[in-house]
Amino acid sequence: MPSYPDRRTALRAGAAVAAGALTAACGTPAAEPPAKAAKAAEAAEAAKATKAARPAAAPAPAPRAFPGQPAQIDHGPRDRPRVALTFHGHGDPATALSVLAEAEKAGARLTVLAVGEWLDAHPDLARRILRGGHELGNHTQRHLDINTMPEAEAYAEITACAQRLRRLTGSIGTWFRPSRTQQATPLVRKLAARAGYPHVLSYDVDSLDFTSPGAAAVIRTVTGTIRPGSVVSLHFGYADTVDAMPPLLEELARRGLRAVTTTELLTP
Rank of each mutant, 00 (worst) to 15 (best):
R8L: 14
A43L: 15
T261G: 01
T140S: 15
A58W: 02
Y203W: 15
E157N: 01
V112F: 03
P61W: 06
R128H: 01
M245E: 09
L85N: 07
G170Q: 02
P178Y: 10
C161E: 09
D206A: 11
F236V: 04
N147D: 13
D74N: 11
R142H: 14
V260T: 10
D204C: 08
P67H: 08
D120P: 03
K51S: 12
T262G: 13
L234Y: 04
A10Y: 09
E151M: 02
A49F: 04
K36C: 00
G89F: 03
G89Q: 05
P247V: 09
R12C: 12
A108K: 06
G14A: 15
S3C: 04
A216H: 08
I73H: 00
I172W: 00
A53S: 14
G14V: 09
L136E: 07
W118E: 07
H90S: 13
R54E: 15
Y238C: 10
A244D: 06
Q163G: 15
I158V: 09
P67W: 07
P123T: 08
A193G: 08
D204V: 06
R220G: 04
R128L: 12
T181H: 02
L136Q: 08
A49P: 01
R64D: 03
A43P: 02
D209P: 04
Q163D: 15
P5D: 14
L257Y: 00
G91C: 08
L100P: 04
I146K: 04
Q72P: 03
Q183E: 12
A43M: 12
R78G: 15
L125M: 15
P213W: 04
G68E: 07
C161F: 03
Q182D: 11
W175A: 13
A13M: 14
R180Y: 06
E151L: 10
R82S: 00
A21P: 05
A96N: 10
L119W: 02
A19N: 01
D204P: 06
P67V: 06
P178E: 05
A25H: 07
R255S: 03
E104K: 10
F236W: 11
P2S: 09
I129D: 04
P55H: 08
L136R: 00
D145G: 13
H75L: 02
A244I: 08
Q182W: 12
R254C: 02
W118Q: 11
I172N: 02
D145E: 13
P228V: 11
D145F: 13
D79A: 08
G137W: 05
A152K: 13
T225N: 12
L234G: 01
L208H: 15
D124I: 11
F66N: 03
T261S: 11
A121D: 13
T9M: 10
G68K: 07
P246Y: 08
A53Y: 02
P150G: 08
G116F: 09
L208A: 14
N147Q: 06
H199R: 07
A101R: 15
G89H: 05
G116W: 01
Y197E: 01
S202G: 11
C161N: 14
Y197C: 07
I146A: 09
E264R: 07
A121F: 05
R227K: 14
